[in-house]
Design a protein around this nucleic acid. Sequence first.
DNA 1: CGTCACAGGTTGATGTGTCATCGATCGGGA
DNA 2: TCCCGATCGATGACACATCAACCTGTGACG
Lengths: 161, 161
Amino acid sequence: MTEWLTDDEQRDWRRYVEMQGRLTAQIAAHMQAEGKMSVPDYEVLVHLSEAPDGRMRSTDLIECTCWEKSRLSHHLTRMEKRGLITRETRADDLRYSDVVITAAGQAAIESAAPMHVAHVRTWFIEALTPAELATFGELCEKVIARLDEVTPLCEEAASPV
Amino acid sequence: MTEWLTDDEQRDWRRYVEMQGRLTAQIAAHMQAEGKMSVPDYEVLVHLSEAPDGRMRSTDLIECTCWEKSRLSHHLTRMEKRGLITRETRADDLRYSDVVITAAGQAAIESAAPMHVAHVRTWFIEALTPAELATFGELCEKVIARLDEVTPLCEEAASPV
DNA sequence: CGTCACAGGTTGATGTGTCATCGATCGGGA
DNA sequence: TCCCGATCGATGACACATCAACCTGTGACG
């Protein structure tokens, strides 16, 4: 309707943007410095380490992470180079390939996880009371619901003509 | 204290992570597709277009954006190549240089701004009631306060020994 | 007047994300 | 049996972010 935001809307939007930028940067920097890995590395390793045999198909990793397949592929190449994972083509269907966590990857995730949790706790969870945190979570959920609802419409609106 | 998060804490943290990832991706993708520019382009152009004469020193842009100077320099190089800005060394102090928005840059920002506002409105602001938005903003503010408070301590804690 | 520390700004190397495209394999229907 | 479409995954080109090193005016201090 309106073309611009009200002062209140703008204030709250900018607060969110500032918070998310700083929180993301803070966590990424410390993960890199102390844990010797990037946030994306961490994400992949968490999923792998929770999977049976520390092994998953690429397709399932895409599902878990919501990444694009090319991003995953590139990232796995780099992680393989660093010795955190290996790739194995599946015998039963040659199109698929398994991603397997290595011992080094396992060790890395085990040392990084508690640190990451501590950071989330320090910079985010402890900033709010339990009730506030619950409220915050619900509001995030509402935004997610909005995205769920709106995204398909946009996809359709963008393609025709 | 604890090494892991409670179920509630984890749920709310993951909601936040999902929301922020999807919202960021959604906005960036549409800015690129419809506005023909990236979010960083947009940020630079907004500041320039608001400055008198559409002109600012690099140093002041760094101040506004909170970017590293090398990031700004690289990005300005790309924007210059795309014709959105030009650079001019200042006559009075050769160390400084001015960044100036071009007519094309002005046109680009003027067409992109309402679109960006509409997206923020659609995917974020309208997902919440005004009261909820205000609450959300306050909670963000609390997290920011936490970051303000903790960051200097971390800097100190990270360096010694 | 030197010279020297420093700040503004650039550059190159490296790691990362996205897009478009491609090669290969499987599964189903003529 | 043979093709055909769909799917998995990889790749190359490019945009972006960070780090470290660098060049160069300026201004302060001897």
